[in-house]
């Protein structure tokens, strides 16, 4: 009883934000945008091929990196975030590896590499999009580092992070973005 109640209260605040976008004639911004700096934890995660990935090293790059938090059996939010990734890859044309898209599971309990792989295939993911799992503690550390800790995967929020290769700062996007908005934000972070 109590759990749905608390969730309901949390929700009503958030739902107002999302509904404002739907109802408003003046089309207020559909997402929130801030610039942040994050300290990346030194943890070892596992990708869709079962390979170990030292998380920190993903960001030693001159390419833009995009990060989001999803999971294999998630409803509503993840499908839309992932459709956004797939769409961006389509826009990138043949060289999809120009941008590194990283999805991190917030359900490491269930998300084995095999599940990650199947998920990527479902979205026709091309090279350049990796999906990471790991131990729950390590995933918690990553979520905390991005100030995106969800106590439970059901309290999940639509967040996307774009790392600028210029100065290592992050654009933090909160909300569900249109394709145009995403590409736009993405260009601001340094894609040509």
């Amino acid at each position: 009883m109590i759990i749905p109640l608390v969730r309901a209260l949390l929700l009503s605040a958030a739902a107002t934000l999302l509904l404002a976008a739907a109802a408003g004639a003046a089309e207020p911004a559909r997402y929130q945008r801030t610039i942040e700096r994050y300290t990346i934890p030194d943890v070892v995660l596992i990708n869709q091929d079962g390979e170990k990935v030292r998380f920190k090293t993903l960001f030693d790059t001159q390419q833009p990196v995009v990060v989001d938090f999803i999971y294999g059996t998630c409803t509503t939010i993840c499908p839309i975030l992932s459709a956004g990734y797939a769409n961006l890859q389509r826009k990138l044309g043949t060289d999809t590896t120009r941008v590194h898209l990283v999805s991190i599971t917030i359900d490491p309990e269930n998300d084995t590499p095999a599940i990650l792989k199947k998920y990527l295939a479902q979205y026709s993911a091309k090279p350049g999009w990796d999906f990471l799992t790991g131990s729950r503690k390590d995933i918690d550390r990553v979520m905390n580092a991005f100030d995106a800790y969800f106590r439970d995967k059901m309290d999940h929020k639509p967040l996307t992070f774009i790392r600028s290769p210029k100065d290592g700062s992050w654009i933090r996007l909160y909300g569900l973005l249109s394709g145009v908005d995403f590409l736009d934000e993405y260009k601001k972070a340094g894609l040509q």
């Binding site: 943890v43 070892v44 030292r54 131990s135 503690k137 390590d138």
Partner: peptide, 15 residues
């Protein structure tokens, strides 16, 4: 590198 991975497991197990 291997040490780092294994210490992850070792320390997380204490958590």
């Amino acid at each position: 590198d291997t040490g780092h991975t294994l210490c992850g497991t070792r320390c997380n197990a204490l958590s």
